[in-house]
Amino acid sequence: MLEILPETHDNILAVRVRDKLTIPDFDQYRNMVRDLMLKNEETHIYYEMVDVDWINPVATIENGLFDVIHGLDYGRVAMVGEKKWQELSAKLASTVKKHGIRYYDLADKEQAMKYVLEGDNPTPTP
């Protein structure tokens, strides 16, 4: 299941995925990313996985090809997860992204969101 988070705005897409990821989930995600990429120089992504126990293999391949084609259009990308295979998939996908992917454990999701929203050098609040 794909959930769009409230932090989604402008050139930022924030999503949470749970349970099983299907082809329609990936299609919705890719369409949203594609739309943002058409409107913005860089698109920043927050991608959180919670209790994901199955991902459709065809959708994974399609998503990987999309990433290869559009890798330079990505800005800051944070992947948040709770399993070793998720960290490994982030490292693999990181190779085709302009700025790579930063992987965070689920306990550090606030830090991951802050990175996506503000980057490494957030502007100080008055």
Rank of each mutant, 00 (worst) to 15 (best):
M1P: 06
L5W: 05
L5K: 08
L5Q: 07
P6I: 08
E7P: 02
T8M: 05
T8Q: 05
H9N: 14
H9Y: 13
H9E: 14
D10W: 13
N11M: 11
I12L: 08
I12W: 05
L13T: 01
L13K: 02
L13N: 01
V15T: 11
V15F: 07
V17F: 02
R18I: 10
R18W: 11
I23Y: 14
P24T: 10
F26P: 00
D27Q: 15
D27M: 15
Q28S: 09
Q28L: 06
Y29D: 05
N31S: 15
M32F: 12
R34P: 06
D35T: 12
M37G: 02
M37D: 03
L38I: 06
K39S: 13
N40L: 04
E41P: 11
H44S: 04
I45W: 05
I45L: 14
I45Q: 11
Y46F: 14
Y47M: 13
Y47D: 12
E48W: 05
V50F: 06
D51E: 13
D51V: 07
V52G: 06
W54S: 09
I55K: 11
I55G: 05
I55C: 12
N56I: 06
V58C: 10
A59E: 05
T60W: 04
I61R: 11
E62K: 06
N63V: 00
L65R: 09
L65T: 07
F66H: 00
I69R: 12
I69C: 09
H70N: 15
H70D: 06
D73C: 15
Y74C: 03
Y74P: 03
R76K: 08
V77T: 02
V77W: 00
A78C: 05
A78W: 01
A78L: 04
A78T: 01
A78H: 01
M79V: 06
V80H: 00
V80T: 00
G81A: 05
K84Y: 00
W85V: 02
W85S: 01
E87L: 02
E87P: 01
A90M: 05
A90Y: 01
L92H: 01
S94V: 04
V96C: 12
V96I: 13
K97W: 03
I101V: 03
D105S: 10
L106F: 09
A107R: 07
A107M: 05
D108K: 04
K109Q: 14
E110S: 12
E110Q: 13
E110L: 12
M113N: 06
M113D: 06
K114T: 10
Y115W: 03
V116Y: 05
T123I: 15
T123G: 13
P124H: 11
P124G: 09
T125G: 11
P126F: 03
